[in-house]
């Protein structure tokens, strides 16, 4: 029971991380109709900038700020230099051009920082564990990530439901052409939305550093899971991204924790763990395929 509780928290923490990525990706798709594979690169850039700054200055918070700034600035630059030209294009063109951006970003980071992973430590006030229920310590830092993620979700809800930008975002997601026709400076809106998404990706990357190792290629691994999330949630829907993130985080973590054990009854430990790991990695894709076949537009479809 206690073990299950801990695994549920692990699932939630992974889900929150996915949400930080998915929110930006799904907004960009919803409003600009762009599939941006390079979103994972912004996550990697955030992680590297944060870890490097933290190594240089010794300050976790400065690192966090640097991660956000680097991802935000480079994100906006990327939008203005390349992605802007892809908005009206076929999805295939978008996939390929942003695939090219991934290759470039990975190599640029490898040249700057080398191929060895960077390590970022935790500040004392976030290290260690707290007892969530008596006798069950849980890493404080992972709890902090959950809190940040939920705060971002609440903030995004406020932004989208109650502000003028939010109104434009909602309008843009459902009637893209109309918003432009209303005389809104659509280019500026696009850049702003993209910048917000980049900022969130940078935040996710910066938060990841102390948990995992910061290395080239880290962006693609979370990118694929993020796409699963937004496809399940319904492309363009932030609400769907939240639901999809938690669902994918839970399914992935629980499958990973319990499938091998279930298989051990029938085969050797090494084989059971390999099969369990493989099947649990497949789980989210099976989930996505099932959702797509059942509701091709995802759980929370946006476009009418």
């Amino acid at each position: 029971m206690i073990l299950l509780l801990e695994q549920l928290l692990n699932g939630l923490q992974y889900g929150v991380m996915l949400f930080l990525m998915a929110a930006g990706l799904t907004l960009v798709f919803g409003i600009m109709g762009l599939i941006n594979l390079a979103h994972g690169s912004l996550y990697m850039i955030g992680a590297y900038a944060a870890a490097w700054t933290q190594q240089q200055t010794g300050s976790f918070l400065l690192g966090l700020a640097a991660g956000l700034a680097a991802a935000g600035v480079l994100g906006v630059a990327l939008e203005m230099a390349i992605l802007r030209r892809l908005y009206g294009r076929a999805h295939l063109d978008q996939v390929l051009a942003t695939f090219g951006v991934i290759l470039f970003a990975n190599e640029a980071v490898a040249m700057l920082f080398g191929r060895q992973p960077l390590m970022a430590g935790l500040p004392r006030w976030l290290a260690g564990a707290v007892e969530i229920v008596p006798g069950v310590p849980y890493p404080l830092y992972r709890l902090a990530i959950i809190a940040v993620g939920l705060a971002v979700a609440a903030g995004l809800y406020g932004l989208i439901a109650h502000t003028r930008i939010g109104m434009l975002v909602r309008a843009g997601a459902t009637h893209r052409a109309l918003v432009g026709a209303l005389g809104v400076r659509i280019g500026l809106l696009f850049t702003a939305v993209f910048g917000l998404g980049a900022l969130l990706a940078g935040l996710a990357g910066a938060l990841t550093g102390p948990l995992l190792s910061v290395q080239v290629g880290m962006g693609e691994r979370i990118l694929i899971a993020t796409f699963v999330v937004i496809v399940i949630g319904g492309l363009g829907s932030v609400r769907g991204a939240l639901a999809g993130s938690v669902l994918v985080g839970m399914v992935d973590t629980l499958a990973r924790a319990y499938l091998p054990g279930a298989l051990r009854g029938v085969m050797a430990a090494a084989d059971a763990d390999a099969l369990g790991a493989g099947l649990s990695s497949m789980a989210i894709f099976i989930l996505m395929a099932a959702v797509l076949l059942w509701r091709p537009r995802g759980l929370f479809p946006t476009h009418g």
Partner: peptide, 17 residues
């Protein structure tokens, strides 16, 4: 006895176990 994945970086579920 647990066999992890060679490309795994998050060991949270294993810690719980």
């Amino acid at each position: 006895e647990i066999y992890t994945r060679l490309d795994q970086t998050d060991y949270a579920p294993e810690m719980a176990q």
